[in-house]
């Protein structure tokens, strides 16, 4: 039995201690917005915030979560910056297949919370762990700059 705090709510789940947080979110809590892409911390599709830090949930065993605050794509719109990121993503038609976008948005939100006017190098650093096979990188970059210059 593990109790984890996700999007401000405590959930108790009966799973094996090595089950990755990603699969607890997707299967036990039915929060399917966080995606499986590689299972090896290589693609970023599973990115969630843990105490505000972007984290690869596919390699974090449930037993390591403890009482840290987990925040997922389903809730990030309730944060000011998360909401801005989502709205700008829509405005610039960033998503194509959309599968990587939960992770991209979590990574971009974390960056902008940390740095209200990121340079291209800052964006490269913060977002290069997130693969997009549809090639939405130019629009992601544009969206981040747009938020920084117009809204932060």
């Amino acid at each position: 039995m593990f109790t984890i705090r996700v999007n401000g709510i405590a959930h108790t789940v009966d799973v094996s201690e090595d089950k990755p947080l990603l699969w607890v979110l997707r299967e036990n809590l039915k929060l399917t917005g966080s995606k499986y892409g590689c299972g090896q911390a290589l693609c970023g599709a599973c990115t969630v915030h843990i105490d505000g830090q972007p984290t690869r949930s596919c390699v974090m065993p449930i037993s390591a979560v403890g009482d840290k605050q987990v925040r997922t794509i389903e809730d990030i719109g309730n944060e000011h910056i998360g909401g801005l990121v989502q709205a700008t993503w829509q405005e610039l038609n960033v998503p194509q297949c959309g599968y990587c976008q939960s992770g991209q948005i979590m990574a971009a939100t974390a960056l902008l919370k940390d740095n209200s006017s990121p340079s291209d190098q800052d964006i490269d650093k913060a977002l290069s762990g997130n693969i997009c096979r549809c090639g939405t990188y130019p629009r992601i970059r544009k969206a981040i700059h747009k938020i920084a210059t117009e809204q932060l």
Partner: peptide, 13 residues
């Protein structure tokens, strides 16, 4: 805008 843009940004798609 793409009709699926909103759902593809909040995890609901």
């Amino acid at each position: 805008q793409r009709l699926d843009a909103a759902d593809k940004t909040d995890g609901s798609f």
